[in-house]
Amino acid sequence: MSDIKAATLEYATRLGDDSVVLGHRISEWVSYGPFLEEDIAYGNVSLDYIGRARMFYTYAAELAADGRDEDDFAFMRNDREYRNLLLMEMPKGDFAYSQVRQLFADVYYTVLLPELLQSKDETLSAIAAKAIKETKYHLRRSRDWVLRLGDGTEESHKRTQKAVDQLWGYTHEMFDMDETEQLLADEGIGVDVSKLRDAWLKMVTDILTEATITVPEDSWAVRGGRTGYHTENLGHMLTEMQIVHRSNPGCKW
């Protein structure tokens, strides 16, 4: 396998991991929302991410060409092999926590996907084209929620500020590059995320400010998702997600 092909396989896997992990976390809200309309919205957003994960993994499987399929990528790798960003695996927390995480992720995809759309790799570009439309809707929703929660009651404000403060340190690694991603960026296949932080920060700052939320200082950062150095949360999440699949090896569903 060429270096570029191997890097693209790794890249598609990383993006698939981000999607499946975040999609799983969002799905944990179904039947736990503050009202019925939110249960529906959560289901919707989760479905979009599971759909993205399937597209990225299917592409990864195609590149790997070793007989694996999308489910092997999702269900047969352990937490040390997963390469998702840490932000995506944080537990659902309260409603403010989930919406703030969602805002950070939605703004990230808002700046990332138009770049991925330009990829020379047609499959990655096609996935980006589909995802851009979904992200537009996702951002509208998470932005509205953060505004309402931040500028709602004293309690909702406090919870939202706390969530922002707790999650901020996990956003830095979203803009880290390593050799694999640098190679792909140089080839016009992958996105140079190190160039996206300013745009991300501006959008997030505008929204948080309007929501009367203080933007935290960059005083701490936790990193490691892309090298498989996760928080303790992912292992539990994957244990639950993979239990049925792994208990019945080789079965079709």
Partner: peptide, 17 residues
């Protein structure tokens, strides 16, 4: 959260929705 394949997970999510 325990659906055994991504396809089944998507179908179930959409059904519950």
């Amino acid at each position: 959260t325990r659906a055994p394949s991504l396809r089944r997970k998507a179908v179930l999510l959409s059904k519950v929705q």
